[in-house]
Amino acid sequence: MDDVRLVIITGMSGAGKTQVVRTMEDLGYFCVDNLPPMLIPKFAELCTQSAGRVNKVGLVVDIRGREFFDTLIQALEDLEKQGYRYEMLFLEASDETLIRRYKETRRRHPMAPHGRIIEGISREREKIDHVRGRATQIIDTSELSTAKLREKITGLFTSEHEQQRMNITVVSFGFKYGIPLDADMVFDVRFLPNPFYVESLRRKSGAVAEVGEYIWKWPITQQFMEQVSGFVDFLVPNYIKEGKSQLIIAIGCTGGMHRSVFVAGKIYEGLKNKGYKVNVDHRDIKHNVLEAPVEG
């Protein structure tokens, strides 16, 4: 199973397994929650037969499985006998932290549905202590924020190459048609010189060379591009480090025809030249083709 990365996620209830699963799904892992341990070897076999379609897997196995959880060690031994490699991530937290989290969410502890939370925590620690010794990674989430836990998981379960594969989309748009709802950051370029007022350029988009030359010749455009490029160059690596899987950069002008198209293209080229996985989408050019040209 060298071509499949299998991560078994377990640990204390309330220690952050749900957040780990969400992060790993964003990283491209196929995750299954609360899988009976006896099914793990069969699931591993199915993954190896998927012809590479399933090559990163996260399986959550914890005390919710009740009596099934007791078979986890046997399932792991069966995996090893069959030659499958796996990693085990064990999440834990202090009693104080777990109690606080249960009180905040008003949930019952699975080991003490009708009793005190601390009693459930104590029983669970005793029950899963033997599993902890098999973990390849142990994370204490007591002092970790959601963002820090996400960053830690991203670092552990993606290669350096994979961490550089955040999907970036640069979108040009016209404020006339509304700001893209999924934008992570928005730049308003309506202050740049407008080709709309040059008769020979009015009906041509910002993707046309002569329109781009007109916009670029002004010092304010060059100064802006220097500033925004530095800003984006600073942000993107930090978003990747934080574990963000998708980034939408929106560039807006009045109609989405000239200035936003040109600037979006320049940002796209800069990111592409740095090796990022990036796409460009000129959202509102179609409006300007179907209608009379609007100020852009």
Rank of each mutant, 00 (worst) to 15 (best):
29 Y>K: 07
61 V>P: 09
67 E>M: 09
45 E>A: 13
45 E>Y: 13
41 P>M: 05
24 M>K: 00
69 F>P: 00
63 I>V: 15
47 C>P: 01
58 G>R: 10
68 F>C: 05
50 S>P: 04
30 F>T: 11
27 L>D: 12
82 Q>S: 06
85 R>G: 14
85 R>C: 10
40 I>H: 00
74 Q>G: 09
38 M>A: 11
45 E>T: 02
25 E>S: 12
44 A>M: 08
66 R>P: 06
84 Y>A: 10
75 A>G: 09
33 D>G: 02
72 L>R: 03
60 V>K: 07
43 F>V: 08
24 M>Y: 04
74 Q>F: 07
80 E>M: 08
83 G>H: 00
42 K>Y: 05
35 L>C: 03
61 V>F: 15
69 F>R: 02
78 D>L: 08
64 R>C: 10
28 G>S: 10
73 I>K: 12
85 R>Q: 10
49 Q>H: 09
49 Q>I: 06
53 R>Y: 06
70 D>L: 10
50 S>I: 06
49 Q>A: 13
55 N>Q: 12
49 Q>P: 04
56 K>G: 07
34 N>S: 02
61 V>H: 11
45 E>Q: 11
50 S>E: 08
57 V>E: 03
67 E>G: 03
40 I>G: 00
74 Q>N: 13
33 D>H: 01
39 L>A: 03
60 V>F: 15
83 G>R: 01
51 A>N: 12
62 D>N: 15
74 Q>I: 15
75 A>P: 00
83 G>I: 00
71 T>D: 10
86 Y>C: 05
46 L>R: 07
73 I>M: 13
24 M>P: 02
70 D>I: 03
81 K>Q: 07
29 Y>N: 12
48 T>K: 14
65 G>H: 06
56 K>M: 08
54 V>Q: 01
56 K>R: 14
77 E>A: 15
33 D>N: 04
48 T>L: 12
62 D>P: 11
64 R>V: 08
83 G>N: 02
53 R>P: 09
83 G>D: 07
45 E>I: 10
47 C>N: 04
26 D>N: 14
81 K>S: 02
61 V>G: 11
68 F>Y: 14
45 E>N: 08
56 K>A: 09
68 F>A: 09
60 V>A: 13
57 V>S: 05
75 A>N: 07
74 Q>M: 13
44 A>Y: 02
57 V>L: 09
25 E>I: 08
59 L>R: 13
38 M>P: 00
54 V>M: 07
51 A>D: 09
52 G>W: 01
49 Q>K: 15
69 F>H: 01
67 E>A: 12
33 D>C: 02
55 N>G: 10
39 L>G: 06
58 G>F: 07
70 D>S: 14
72 L>V: 08
